[in-house]
Amino acid sequence: MPNDMNYSPDTALVLSRVGVRADNGRNRREFALEDVSLSVAKGEFVSIVDPSGIGTSTLMRVILGLMPPARGDIMRGFETPAMVPRDHALFPWLTVLENVAFGLQMKDVPQETREHVAREKLAEVNLEHIEQRYPAVLSREERQRVSLARALTLAPDLLIMDEPFSGLDTIAAAALKADLLRIWRSHSMTILMTNSLIPEAVELSDRVVLMEAHPGRIATTLTINLPRPRDPRSPAFFREVDRLTNAIRRIS
């Protein structure tokens, strides 16, 4: 973990001793994150596992510039970030197609072009058949995929995903994982994902950052020593899951 701004052109993001104050729910602001230092290379897939689930969403907001850090420095080596929020955050008044095209509409891309791109991205997440539906009638998996397609329309170089597998059943999560890996490879983007599921973190990530709570800070960072494609039923995979599980136990 860097304590200084060791930035290079291959770096997508550097956080150096970042601290963030947030409301603690009792109308008092205290440090939700403290002394967070992390460097992410371009094209890397990094998972942040936070067993307490307290500080990761805040961290993502800080990285995206949606809230300022109370202290520390952030070096952003990405140009076009996009996000898949925890609760997908689709706009309920727009159809699926309009939701996916939203980012392009904000860039004043002509309607025909943006709808063409949106349809391409919907096809990429296997949802081209639901473009005229509203989010209210979609399943949780479909909403998550629409949210992913919306992010992809911006051609992001950094994709931030907040608990993308939360609330999905095993089959839906497996399908989304497979698609996510395919999209990550084909788009050559950096992915920063918060996740509380250890097998998913091991299967997808180059590195896993483990957070501890009160205040949130990085406890340790583990590199996943498995070749890709990864077989989640192999003994080596289970050993990595055990290593991560034991590291989390030590923290908690």
Binding site: L64, A82, D87, A89, F91, G103, K107, R150
Partner: peptide, 14 residues
């Protein structure tokens, strides 16, 4: 929802 307001910002609704 905060997520929705954040999504609007990130996707360019400024």
């Amino acid at each position: 929802p905060q997520d929705q307001a954040d999504a609007a910002t990130v996707f360019g609704a400024r």
